[in-house]
Design a protein around this nucleic acid. Structure first.
Lengths: 250, 250
DNA sequence: AGGCGCTTGTGAACGCGTGCACAAATCGCG
DNA sequence: CGCGATTTGTGCACGCGTTCACAAGCGCCT
C-alpha cells in the first residue's frame, strides 16, 4: 500500500486555486470513487438532476452507508432530505481523481493484449489519452494501430520529452516487464499499470497496480470448486450465500 | 502441464476421494493463492526443490508472515528448518483452486478486448480452456479467431449442452452486459468475469468478478494528482513512501 | 409559520486482515 | 547423541474498513 505523507492538514475544505491539500482518503474509498463516477455519468445522461445515496449506491453496487461515508470524506456535497447534485458531485469526484486534466498514457507491448488496449475507447472517454505505442519487436515498429504508429522502445526517452507521460501501461510478456518498468521509471513515469504476470520492483515513489486476467479466473475457479463440493455434500446448499459481487481493487 | 488427481496423502486432513470439505479460507488468502502458484512455477522451472517462506514471499511480493499464515490455512505442508516442498505445494494450491480439472470458459463479445482475450495464452497455460466464442453481431459470426469459430449468442444454450461451462467471460459493451449475464445464468453458468463497465445483477449463487481497466487508470490518476500536489506543497516530499505495489483482488 | 417526512452525515461497535514476535520442530554437524 | 542454526506455525495486538443506528438538517405541504 502506498503510504501517504503530506503533513499540512491546514484548513480542511481548502482546495483553493491550483494546489490542493488532500484529506487523506482511505484507499478503499479511492478505489470506489471511479465506480461512483461511472454511475453518476449514467444517471446524468438519464436526465437525473439529483440522486439519493440509496439510489446511487444501488447503481454502483454498494451499501448506501458506505457510499455516504465515502462521499463525506471529500466534503459535504449533499443536501439533507434531497440527495446529491449529480453535476456537482461529478465535478467533485473528477477533481479529486485528477481527471480534470487529460492524462497521457504510454503503452508498452503491442502484442495480443496491447493491441486491444490501444483501441479500447474506455480510455479516451474516461479521461486518458494514449500518446505512444512502444514495442521491442522491430517487426512491429512502424505498424499503425488505431491511428498511432508503433515506435521502438528505445525511443521512450524521446517520447517522454515530447509529452509528459503520467502513466505507463505494461502489456509485454512477463520476462520483459521488469526491464520495461525500469525504463519507464528512468523516463520519469511514476504510475504503472502492469498486465504482465510478475512482480515489479520499483522505487518507493512509483505506484504500481497489477491486473492479472488469469488470476481472476483462478479465483473464480476456486469458488466453482467450493460450490461443487458444497452441493455434493450432505448438507449442501445450492442457492444461498450472501452478496457475491466482487470488484477489483486493492 | 496437466496434473492428475493428487496422489492422496490420505494422512491428515480429510480431503479424501472426490468430495472435499473446505476449511473456509479467508477471501484475502484465496486472492493471493494464484500469485503464490505463479511464483512457485517460476521457482520450480528454475530448478528449486524447496523454498523458504521468505523466498517465496519475496517472489510473490508479500510479507513472509502473511504467506505462512495463508499456507497454514490449507494445512501443514512445510518442514520446519527447511521450507516448503515446491512440487507438493504447487499440487496443493492447484487442488484447492480447483485447477486439477481444466475448466471450460465461454467468452461473449468478440470486439476489441474479446478478440485479445481469445488469443491470450495465459488462459490456456494456467488451467483454462476457451471452448466457445459468442457474439450478437451477425457480421462477426463465422469469423475464425485463434482456431475457434465465432458463434451467435443465441447458440449459448446449445454450447452449454455440448460442454459444461464453468466460467463465462463478458467482454461486450456495457449496454449488452446485463442481458448476456442473464443468458449465461440461464445456461447454468455460476461464475462470471465481467469486463464491461457496469454493475451486474445476478442470483445469489452466482459469483461475479469485475475488471474495469479505466478504473485502474483512474486510481493511478488519483495518486498522480496527489503526488503532484504534494511536491508542490511546502513540506512536499518527492521520493518517500514505503511499499506501493498494489495488486488487484478483492 | 409550524410540523412532518425524508435524507445526509457520523458516532460507535464489530469483524477482518495484517504484522510482530516467539515457541515448537526439524535438520545437520561435531 | 546432543546442540545450535534455521524455519515453520501461530497467539496476540493493532489498525482499517464496514455496518448499524440515529441525530441533525432540509424542503414541502398545510
Amino acid at each position: 500500500m502506498s503510504q501517504q505523507r503530506h503533513g499540512s492538514t491546514s484548513g480542511n475544505g481548502a482546495r483553493a486555486g491550483a494546489v490542493s491539500a488532500f484529506p487523506d482518503l482511505p484507499e478503499a474509498t479511492i478505489a470506489r470513487l471511479p465506480e461512483y463516477l461511472r454511475a453518476l455519468h449514467n444517471l446524468g445522461e438519464g436526465g437525473a438532476d439529483t440522486i439519493s445515496s440509496e439510489g446511487l449506491a444501488a447503481a454502483a453496487g454498494v451499501n448506501s452507508a458506505k457510499l455516504r461515508k465515502d462521499l463525506s470524506h471529500l466534503g459535504s456535497y449533499g443536501t439533507r432530505g434531497v440527495g446529491y447534485d449529480v453535476a456537482l458531485l461529478i465535478e467533485q469526484i473528477e477533481y479529486v481523481l485528477g481527471l480534470d486534466q487529460r492524462r497521457a498514457v504510454c503503452l508498452v507491448g503491442v502484442g495480443n493484449l496491447g493491441h486491444a488496449l490501444a483501441g479500447y475507447d474506455g480510455f479516451a472517454s474516461r479521461g486518458f489519452k494514449i500518446v505512444a505505442l512502444l514495442d521491442a519487436d522491430p517487426a512491429k515498429v512502424g505498424e499503425r494501430i488505431h491511428g498511432l504508429i508503433v515506435r521502438h522502445i528505445d525511443e521512450l526517452p524521446a517520447v517522454a520529452v515530447e509529452e509528459t507521460i503520467a502513466i505507463g501501461v505494461i502489456a509485454t510478456p512477463a520476462g520483459a516487464a521488469q526491464a520495461v518498468a525500469d525504463e519507464l521509471v528512468t523516463a520519469g513515469v511514476t504510475s504503472i499499470l502492469n498486465f504482465a504476470p510478475c512482480v515489479l520492483s520499483v522505487p518507493a515513489n512509483v505506484d504500481v497496480r497489477k491486473v492479472d486476467l488469469a488470476i481472476e479466473l483462478q479465483i473464480l475457479s476456486f469458488h466453482e470448486h467450493r460450490k461443487a463440493s458444497l452441493t455434493a455434500l450432505p448438507g449442501g446448499r445450492s442457492a444461498t450465500g450472501a452478496g457475491n459481487q466482487e470488484a477489483v481493487g486493492s
